Measured scan of single mutants.
Amino acid sequence: AEKTGIVNVSSSLNAREGASTSSKVIGSLSGNTKVTIVGEEGAFYKIEYKGSHGYVAKEYIKDIKDE
């Protein structure tokens, strides 16, 4: 099942092309942005936001229960 997560940073969080800190940054998400978690790979979540996919470090995403 898809989960919703909240970007848990004070400034912004980089979204990357792949599940690695050396992957190209494809965008950034500001704190408290809601994202859909579609998968996980190592220390990263694969997320969907406004129709695009990217990878973000798990430690900066807070899971919330689907309402």
Rank of each mutant, 00 (worst) to 15 (best):
K50M: 13
E41C: 13
T4Q: 09
G51D: 08
K24D: 05
G42H: 04
S30L: 14
Y45F: 08
G42N: 06
S20N: 10
I6N: 04
V9S: 12
S10T: 12
A15S: 04
E48S: 07
K50A: 11
Y60A: 08
V25Q: 04
T4E: 07
I61N: 00
A1Q: 13
Y45D: 05
T21R: 11
N32K: 08
S12M: 11
K24S: 08
K58W: 02
I37D: 00
G27F: 15
V25I: 13
T33R: 05
A19E: 02
V9D: 05
A19D: 02
I61F: 04
G18P: 02
D63Q: 12
H53G: 04
G27Y: 13
N32Q: 10
V56D: 01
G18I: 06
S30F: 11
K24L: 08
V9E: 05
K46W: 07
L29K: 01
N8R: 12
S23C: 10
K3F: 09
Y49P: 00
G31F: 11
I61K: 01
E17F: 07
A57H: 08
A57W: 09
N32V: 05
E67W: 11
V7T: 06
Y45H: 05
L13V: 15
I26N: 01
I61W: 02
Y60L: 07
F44C: 07
K50C: 14
G39Q: 03
N32F: 11
N32D: 09
S23G: 05
G51M: 04
S30T: 11
I47P: 04
G51I: 02
S30N: 11
T33K: 04
G39R: 01
S30Q: 14
K65G: 08
S11W: 06
Y55L: 02
L29G: 00
N32L: 09
K3G: 04
E2G: 14
V35F: 03
V7F: 02
T36C: 11
E17D: 09
E48H: 08
T21C: 15
G31Y: 12
A19Y: 03
G39F: 03
E59Y: 06
K50E: 13
N8V: 12
E67K: 13
G5V: 04
A57V: 08
G31S: 13
V9A: 10
K50H: 10
K24V: 07
G27A: 07
E59H: 08
E17S: 09
V38M: 06
G27K: 03
S23Y: 05
G39N: 02
S10I: 12
I61P: 01
K24H: 06
Y60P: 02
G54N: 01
K34P: 06
S52C: 13
K50I: 05
S30H: 11
K65F: 13
A1N: 12
V7W: 01
S23K: 03
I47W: 00
S11I: 12
K34V: 13
A19W: 04
K62Y: 08
K34F: 09
G54H: 05
V25K: 05
V25G: 03
K3R: 14
G42S: 04
A43R: 08
V25H: 03
E41P: 00
T36K: 14
E17H: 07
Y60I: 02
I26E: 02
S22M: 10
G5N: 02
A19Q: 03
G27Q: 04
G18F: 14
T21D: 13
E48I: 14
G42L: 03
E48Q: 11
K62A: 10
F44H: 02
Y49H: 03
I64R: 03
K58I: 06
I64G: 05
G31V: 10
T33E: 10
V25D: 02
I6R: 08
G42T: 01
T33D: 08
T33V: 09
S10H: 11
G42C: 07
E17M: 08
I6E: 03
S11P: 11
S23I: 03
L29F: 05
N14A: 14
K34L: 11
K34A: 06
Y60V: 04
E48Y: 11
V56A: 00
K62G: 10
I26S: 03
A19F: 04
G5K: 04
T33N: 04
A57K: 11
T36I: 13
K46F: 07
G54L: 08
S10D: 11
K58T: 02
E48V: 14
R16H: 15
L29E: 00
K58E: 00
L13G: 04
E2M: 15
V35L: 03
L29S: 00
L29R: 00
A1F: 14
H53S: 06
V56N: 00
F44A: 00
V56L: 05
I6D: 02
S30G: 09
S10W: 05
Y49D: 01
I47D: 04
I64N: 05
Y60K: 08
Y55E: 00
A43M: 10
